[in-house]
Structures are given as structure tokens and as C-alpha cells.
């Protein structure tokens, strides 16, 4: 088993933060984890990627071409990951959740946490980890920071869809 996850979004959207949560939670299970971030010179506004592999066998080469789960959080990111898109992978595009996010008043800065909820659910279904594993890390990292209530709601919303 080797689950390949490619996360993509604009710099500043919090791609690296949710990547760290997924990887840390997976590391605390018995699986092997390999992750590599990819971004350019921009501090903000460029495309930010993270390639994650969670596997029962050690994966030494960090990059891959065919993700099993592909998260796209912006039109710019969609363009950047075009070569990684093909039929078969589970594609999570933020645009497809626009009305749900609006109905539930999810602020823009919590959209990454909503996506983290979505991915946590998928990984739980695949019996890789439990959503609580990720939520605990999230709580540790963000609960004392502004916007925690919104982030908590966003995570739950993603996780229950």
C-alpha cells in the first residue's frame, strides 16, 4: 500500500500547514511517511505544493507523477498541477465546494482546514489514521490562535461531508 497525496494551492493558503498535520499524524501510526514541499521564490502568491506518500513500505524517492488524492485550492494551482491530473485519482477541488463553504460561512482563511477535514475523512476510511489523530495536532497548533472556532467548524464540516 502506498497512498500518494498531492496538495496544491496558492502560497499563504496554508498548504504546508495541512501537509505537516497529515504527515505528523501518519508518522505516529506504523506507516512510513515521505513528504516534500515545492514552492518557488515568492513569499506569497506563488503556487505551493506538497507531495506526500504514506506507505507500508519505505518510499525513498519523494516525488511522484500519479497522485491517488489530488487537492486543488486555487485556479493557479490547478494550472500548475495539470500534468498530475488524470482519470482515476480522487480530485478535491475547492471550487466544487463553493456553495457549501458559503452556506456554512467558512472564512477564506479556514478553507485549508476544511480541506484537511476532507482528507482526514478519506484517510480514516482507508484505515490509515483516525480523524482524532489529526484533530489533536490541529488543536495543539491553532487552539490558542485567533479564528480557532472557525477552524474547528471548518474541520468538522469537511470531515462530515
Amino acid at each position: 500500500m502506498n497512498i500518494k497525496i498531492l496538495l496544491s494551492g496558492d502560497g499563504g493558503q496554508g498548504i504546508q500547514l495541512i501537509a505537516n498535520m497529515i504527515c505528523q499524524a501518519a508518522f505516529e501510526t506504523d506507516f512510513h511517511v515521505t513528504a516534500i514541499p515545492n514552492y518557488g521564490l515568492e513569499q506569497r502568491g506563488g503556487v505551493s505544493l506538497n507531495f506526500i506518500q504514506i506507505s507500508d513500505k519505505k518510499q525513498v524517492y519523494p516525488k511522484f507523477t500519479k497522485p491517488d488524492i489530488l487537492l486543488i485550492m486555487s485556479p493557479q494551482a490547478k494550472e500548475r498541477v495539470e500534468e498530475y491530473q488524470e482519470n482515476g485519482e480522487l480530485k478535491l477541488e475547492i471550487g466544487d465546494y463553493e456553495s457549501i463553504l458559503k452556506e456554512n460561512n467558512v472564512p477564506k482563511q479556514s478553507q485549508n482546514i476544511f480541506c484537511l477535514g476532507l482528507i482526514a475523512k478519506i484517510l480514516e476510511e482507508k484505515e490509515i489514521l483516525k480523524k482524532e489523530n489529526i484533530f489533536e495536532l490541529l488543536e495543539k497548533k491553532l487552539s490558542t490562535k485567533p479564528g480557532w472556532e472557525e477552524n474547528k467548524k471548518a474541520f468538522d464540516l469537511g470531515n462530515t461531508l
Partner: peptide, 9 residues
């Protein structure tokens, strides 16, 4: 840069 930025168990 790839090997140095890779995070792994």
C-alpha cells in the same frame, strides 16, 4: 534541494 527538503521517518 530535494533530498534536503524531504521529510521522512
Amino acid at each position: 534541494g530535494y533530498l534536503l527538503k524531504t521529510k521522512q521517518d
